[in-house]
Write a protein that binds this DNA or RNA. Structure first.
Length: 818
RNA sequence: GGGGAUGUGGCGGAAUCGGUAGACGCGCCGGCCUUAGGAGCCGGUGCCCGUUACGGGCGUGGGAGUUCAAAUCUCCCCAUCCCCACCA
C-alpha cells in the first residue's frame, strides 16, 4: 500500500479530533470575525449516497480553509427529519415512522462522520425532536398572531381508492402511483401563510444580494410580478339585459386593447360559475366541462400546443364597460382561477392564447393596436398588413376617442374611464402549510365548539405529535384517529374543543433550522438574541438548484416575517448562495435503483479512503456551476494515486536550505492560485495547481522542508486526514488544521520571463521568450528577428503591428475585410 | 407550455477586462523496471496531411456577424439537463 494505510489514518484522526473536540464551535470570541457556512441539511432517507458526499464533503474544504485563514467558522449539520417517506415505511412495513426515522439518522450519522468533515456535531438539530419542533410551533404562532396565517380551501390531488391526498410526484400519468386509480381533485381546508404580502420585498431585496444572477432571475420569474389593471364587466341575464346580475373584474396588463375585447372568459373552477348556473341554458354541457377541467393538472392545462377547449354559457352576457356592447361569456381552461381574478377579457387580435381560442369558434377578431411604424405609414389601414395576433404595443385604432393614442397613454386613460383600478398581481400564491400526513410537526391550533380556530398557548408547547394513530389511509389526516390528542384537547380547552389534525409542510421546518444552529440547546427560546446577532446572517449557503424557487423563497419569506417581528437581526437569512451540480451514475444517467447505477460511497471510502473520495468529488468539475457530472471510477483511482505520491514525497530526504528559485516561485504561485480558487468554489483548479506543484517537487532529490510543509498546509483542507498524519510525522504536536494559511510573496510570484506570441494576420506563427516589461519597439524588433517570422515577412508589407505588452505581437499584412 | 442552465479531445474538465485552445486528471500508445502485474518510473497523445529538419491545413454544438485577433462579444438555429406547490 506504499505506506498509505488510509483506514488506520482516518480512524486514528477521527477519534482524536472527536476526543480533543477540535471542531466544536464556541461563541464568537471578541475581535474575531465569524464565518457561517451552511449546506442544506439532509433528509434521513436511509443511506448516505454519493450526492450527500458531494453536498457536504466538498464545502468542508472551504470551511477548513476559512478556519486556517483566521475566521471563527460555524459549519453545522442536522437532519430534516419529518416527511412522507417515513409514513410510507409505516404503511408498508408496519414500522413506526419515528423508529424508521431515528434508525436512519443513526446510520447516516456514522456515515457522515466517516467523511471527517469539521462538522460541529454538538450543535446538531433534528427537526422531529420535540425540542426543535416546539420552536417551529412557537414561531408559527407569532406569525399567526401577526395575521400572516389564515385558513382557506384549496384543490389537492386525491386518490379515491387509497383515500389519500397525493403529492404531484405520486401522480403518474394522471393515475395514483400506488394503485393506478385515476386521480381526482378534492377541496381541502388548509392553513396558508401570506407570502404574497411579501412578494414585493422578496423581489426588490434581491437587488442587494450577491447571489448568482440566474438564481435571482429564477426567483423573480417565479414570483411573477405583473402590473396591470382590473376592469369591471357587468354580467346580465340575456332575457333581461337591463338588470345586471353582478359585476366581475377582469385582470389585464393590456387595458389599451379593451376595444378589441370580443368575449369574456371565466376559469372553469371559479366559484362564479356555480353562482351563474341558474341563468345558464346549457347546464349539463357546462357542468361536464367544469368536471373535466378540474381533473386536469395545471401544467397540462397551460401547455400552449394543446388545443384550447371551452364552453359558452348560454343565457349569460357581459356588458363591455366602454361601448356597452353585449359580449358572449365562456368558460375555458386556459384561464386559471387563482391568477389575477380568474376572469379574462378575450382579445383575439392581440393575445396569442385568445387568438387560438377564438379562431374556429366564430368569435370576432378586432385589431385595435398597430405598431407605431405601420401606423405612421398607413394609419388605421396598417392593421390589414399586420400579422395576427399582434402582441406588441403601438398606436390605437378602432377605439373611438382613443384612436391615435400610444398604448401606454391609452392604458391609463382607459383604466380611468372604464372605472377600472390599477392592480399588481403575482404568479406566486400563498403558501399552503397543511398536510394530511402523520409524520410532521403538529399545527398548534385548536377549534372551539363553534369551529373557530385558536392558538395553542405557548405554555402547552411542544404540542406533541400523538403516538396512538392509525396509519391506514381513511380520507382523514392520521392524527384524527388519535384518542390521546382528542382527549388532551378537551382536557386543556374544554368539552367540544377539537384539535387541528393536519401537520406542517416540511418546508416550515427548513425555513428556520439555520437559526437554531446558533443556539441549539436553548430551552427558553428558539435562540438567544445575542447569539443570533453574533452568527447571522449565514455567510454562504450551498445546496441544490431544485430549491431555488421553493425552500429558498419560503425561508427568505419566513425570515423577513420574523425580522418584522424583531425576532431575527437581519432582513435576509443568507448573504451568498451557490447551487451545486449533481452526480450522475458512471453511465452518465441520473442515479436510480431501477437503473442499477447507484454509487455507494461507503464502498469507495473503504477501498481508497475518505480523503481520496472527497478529493475526487472536488476535482470532477467546478462546484459553483449546477452541472451534472458522471461518477468515474478511473478518476477516483487517479486521486488515490495522487495521495500515494504525497506519501512517497513524505519519505524523501529533507533539508533546511532554501529551494531553487524556480521552485520557490512555483510554490508561491500555487499558494496564490489555491487561495484564490477555494473561496470561488473552484476546487478543481486548486487541486490541479497542487498536482502541478507535486509534479515539480517530485523532481527534487532533497526537498526543502519549508516547501514540503507549506504543501501540506495547502493540502490540509482537501485531504484532512492524510495532511494531519504527515504533519504529525514532521514532528508537530498541534493540529495542522489550527495552523495559519500560507501567504504568498507577490514579488516572487511574478515570472521574470514571459513568452511572447508572434502572429501574422492573427495566426500564431512562433513564440519566443523575453524578459518582462520589454518596450514596444524592442518586442517588435525581436519578433521580426525570429527566423521563421523573418522569412515569412520577406517581401510583404506590414500594414499595422498590434502589440500587447508581455504577451503578443501581431503583424497585419492583409487588407482589412469589410 | 413557462422558467433556469449547459454544449470545448476517447472521457471529466482548463483557458472568458477578446490575445499560444486543450492546464490537471482519467483513458490510450511506446519504453524502463519486474518472477508477475490491474504496482511504480520515463516519454507520447485534438484531428488530417507531410515527414529529413523546420512544417502545413482544420478545429471549442451548427450558421452568420463584429474585430488585427472570437471558446470568449452580437444575432439566428440545434441538442441535452433541471424545476414547476401534500417529494426532500
Amino acid at each position: 500500500m506504499h505506506g498509505y494505510d488510509h483506514r488506520a489514518i482516518e480512524r486514528k484522526w477521527q477519534e482524536r479530533w472527536e476526543k480533543e473536540k477540535l471542531y466544536e464551535t464556541s461563541h464568537v470570541p471578541a475581535g474575531k470575525k465569524k464565518y457561517y457556512l451552511l449546506t442544506e441539511f439532509p433528509y434521513p432517507s436511509g443511506n448516505l449516497h454519493i450526492g450527500h458526499w458531494y453536498a457536504f464533503a466538498v464545502p468542508d474544504i472551504f470551511a477548513r480553509f476559512q478556519r486556517m485563514r483566521g475566521y471563527h467558522v460555524l459549519y453545522p449539520i442536522g437532519f430534516d427529519a419529518f416527511g412522507l417517506p417515513a409514513e410510507n415505511a409505516a404503511i408498508k412495513h408496519g414500522r413506526h415512522p419515528r423508529d424508521w426515522t431515528y434508525d436512519n439518522i443513526a446510520r447516516m450519522t456514522a456515515q457522515l462522520k466517516s467523511m471527517g468533515n469539521m462538522f460541529d456535531w454538538s450543535r446538531q438539530v433534528i427537526t422531529s425532536d420535540q425540542e426543535f419542533y416546539r420552536w417551529t410551533q412557537w414561531l408559527f404562532l407569532r406569525l399567526f398572531e401577526a395575521g400572516l396565517a389564515y385558513r382557506a380551501t384549496e384543490l389537492a390531488n386525491w386518490c379515491p381508492s387509497c383515500k389519500t391526498v397525493l403529492a404531484n410526484e405520486q401522480v403518474k400519468d394522471g393515475a395514483c402511483e400506488r394503485c393506478g386509480t385515476e386521480v381526482g381533485k378534492r377541496e381541502q381546508a388548509s392553513w396558508f401563510l401570506r407570502i404574497t404580502a411579501y412578494a414585493d420585498r422578496l423581489i426588490d431585496d434581491l437587488d442587494n444580494l450577491p447571489w448568482p444572477e440566474e438564481i435571482k432571475e429564477s426567483q423573480r420569474n417565479w414570483i411573477g410580478r405583473r402590473r396591470g389593471a382590473e376592469l369591471p364587466f357587468a354580467l346580465v341575464n340575456e332575457q333581461n339585459p337591463e338588470a345586471p346580475v353582478r359585476t366581475v373584474r377582469a385582470f389585464t396588463t393590456r387595458a389599451d386593447t379593451l376595444f378589441g375585447a370580443t368575449y369574456l372568459v371565466i376559469a372553469p373552477e371559479h366559484s362564479l360559475v356555480q353562482e351563474l348556473m341558474p341563468l345558464v341554458h346549457n347546464k349539463e354541457e357546462v357542468q361536464e366541462y367544469v368536471h373535466a377541467a378540474c381533473a386536469m393538472r395545471e401544467i397540462d392545462r397551460l401547455a400552449e400546443d394543446r388545443e384550447k377547449t371551452g364552453v359558452i354559457l348560454r343565457g349569460v352576457a357581459a356588458r363591455h364597460p366602454l361601448t356597452g356592447k353585449m359580449l358572449p361569456v365562456l368558460l375555458a381552461d386556459y384561464v386559471l382561477a387563482h391568477y389575477g381574478t380568474g376572469v379574462v377579457m378575450g382579445v383575439p387580435a392581440h393575445d396569442a392564447r385568445d387568438y387560438l381560442f377564438a379562431r374556429g369558434r366564430g368569435l370576432p377578431v378586432v385589431p385595435v393596436v398597430v405598431p407605431e411604424r405601420l401606423f405612421r405609414e398607413k394609419g388605421a389601414r396598417g392593421a390589414d398588413e399586420m400579422p395576427l395576433p399582434y402582441t406588441g404595443e403601438g398606436v390605437l385604432i378602432n377605439s373611438a376617442r382613443y384612436d391615435g393614442m400610444p398604448s401606454q397613454e391609452a392604458r391609463r386613460a382607459i383604466v380611468h374611464d372604464a372605472e377600472g383600478q390599477a392592480r399588481t398581481t403575482y404568479r406566486l400564491r400563498d403558501w399552503s402549510l397543511s398536510r394530511q400526513r402523520y409524520w410532521g410537526c403538529p399545527i398548534p391550533i385548536v377549534y372551539d365548539p363553534e369551529g373557530t380556530p385558536h392558538a395553542v398557548p405557548d405554555e402547552h408547547l411542544p404540542w406533541t405529535l400523538p403516538e396512538d394513530v392509525d396509519f391506514t389511509p381513511s380520507g382523514k389526516s392520521p392524527l384524527a384517529s388519535s384518542k390521546e390528542l382528542r382527549e388532551r384537547t378537551e382536557r386543556l380547552f374544554g368539552k367540544g374543543w377539537k384539535p387541528e389534525v393536519d401537520t406542517f409542510d416540511t418546508f416550515v421546518d427548513s425555513s428556520w433550522y439555520y437559526l437554531r444552529y446558533a443556539d441549539p440547546h436553548n430551552a427558553a427560546a428558539f435562540a438567544d438574541a445575542r447569539l443570533l446577532a453574533d452568527w447571522l446572517p449565514v455567510d454562504r449557503y450551498s445546496g441544490g438548484a431544485e430549491h431555488t424557487t421553493m425552500h429558498l423563497l419560503y425561508s427568505r419569506f419566513w425570515h423577513k416575517a420574523l425580522y418584522d417581528l424583531k425576532l431575527v437581526p437581519t432582513p435576509e437569512p443568507y448573504i451568498e448562495r451557490f447551487n451545486h451540480g449533481q452526480i450522475l451514475g458512471p453511465d452518465g444517467k441520473k442515479m436510480s435503483k431501477s437503473r442499477g447505477n447507484v454509487v455507494d460511497p461507503d464502498e469507495h471510502v473503504a477501498r481508497v479512503g475518505a480523503d481520496a473520495v472527497k478529493l475526487y468529488l472536488a476535482f470532477m468539475g467546478p462546484y459553483h456551476t449546477p452541472a451534472n457530472y458522471p461518477f468515474d471510477l478511473g478518476g477516483i483511482a487517479g486521486m488515490r494515486r495522487f495521495l500515494e505520491r504525497v506519501v512517497r514525497l513524505s519519505e524523501k530526504q529533507r533539508t533546511d536550505t532554501a529551494p531553487p528559485r524556480d521552485l520557490a516561485r512555483l510554490l508561491h504561485q500555487t499558494i496564490r492560485k489555491v487561495t484564490e480558487d477555494i473561496p470561488a468554489f473552484k476546487f478543481n483548479t486548486a487541486i490541479s495547481a497542487l498536482m502541478v506543484l507535486l509534479n515539480r517537487v517530485d523532481k527534487e532529490t532533497v526537498l526543502a522542508t519549508q516547501v514540503y510543509e507549506t504543501f501540506l498546509r495547502l493540502l490540509a483542507p482537501f485531504a484532512p486526514h492524510l495532511a494531519e498524519e504527515l504533519w504529525e510525522r514532521c514532528g508537530h504536536t498541534t493540529s495542522i488544521h489550527l495552523q495559519a494559511w500560507p501567504e504568498w510573496d507577490a514579488q516572487l510570484v511574478q515570472e521574470e520571463e514571459v513568452t511572447i506570441v508572434v502572429q501574422i494576420d492573427g495566426k500564431t506563427r512562433a513564440t519566443f521568450a523575453a524578459p518582462r516589461g520589454l518596450s514596444r519597439e524592442d518586442v517588435v524588433q525581436r519578433a521580426r528577428e525570429v527566423p521563421h517570422i523573418a522569412s515569412r515577412l520577406e517581401g510583404r508589407a506590414v500594414r499595422t503591428t498590434v502589440v500587447v505588452p508581455d504577451r503578443l505581437v501581431n503583424f497585419v499584412t492583409a487588407p482589412p475585410h469589410t
